[in-house]
Amino acid sequence: MTAAFELILCLMILGTACVALLVRDFLAAIAFFVVFGNLMGLAWLALGAVNVALAEIAIGAGVTGVLLILTRGRLLALGEQIDGNPLGHWLNLGAAVVCSAFAVVLGAAVLSIAPDDGLAPVIDRLMPRIGVENPVTGVLLAFRAYDTLLESFVLLGALVAVWSLAPADAWPRAPAALRMTDPAALNVAESFGRLVLPIALVVAAYLVWVGSDRPGGAFQGGTVLAGGFLLAAMGGAMGLPRSDDPAFRWTLVAGPLVFLAIGLAGMALGRFLAYPEGMAKALIVTIEYFLAFSIGVTLALLVAGPPVRAETVP
């Protein structure tokens, strides 16, 4: 039963990926990409990786989907053609042969590795020392805290890079407004945005809180928050901040900064990013809350894009 389910799931994943890549209409391609992301989330659930399933559905399907739709709208407004004009048949065939060969080699490499959860018992043994029960949170914020710290800086760096693409005379302004243009549609979107934003806040706080013992965590919570912000912005319930607003800049760096400060404080006690015995859980939850808030704001602004000259509509 499980085997049949997983086989069908894998076939559906491959099928939706094919359609997302090859369908002529790009909006349909994005729709299939979102379906693909949700099926990937189901695959992670089948693997028992609920943390990853949450992240994949929220970020891989949700945020990336919004981003692609928004970019498509902006490109169409500029008069770009996104519908694919494929290469010649022979080139297509050649690419197909090369890529299938590559996939086969990769598959052979995969088959040569036996699936193995060798690190799970090691991590299980270490978990009681940090007082957190979700092993993924343990890895992210204690055993490989380095990676997560750098990752939070990567997000910040990506936002700075996106901002650096703004035209010179647009610099400190706000990104292009996300609000809908049609007044009646705006009305619908506004009431939904006003309803969803507080719910998103509560759900994000809940996800971060349960993340220490059960599936959830800072990234998942932060993404839910970003979704709430984006919906509120689309409904016009919330404006987008100017890039030089100091309070807003502090919310962007708060997460990485608190993380770094706690890491450096750990250095005073011995090692960088080492938590003192008995205080690990409190520190981890503190870091996660700040991180989730910063991630939410950063992701929402990454989607919104660079500052623009005047009030234009995507």
Binding site: V52, A55, I123, E151, L155
Partner: peptide, 30 residues
């Protein structure tokens, strides 16, 4: 992540790496 699949749990270590990867990939997509 799939290569971390064990008898009844999936290795949490690659899970954490994949979450990191998902977040980095959305940043690069943006």
């Amino acid at each position: 992540g799939g290569l971390g699949r064990g008898e009844d749990v999936t290795d949490p270590y690659p899970q954490a790496l994949v979450i990191t990867g998902i977040v980095v990939s959305v940043a690069l997509t943006a």
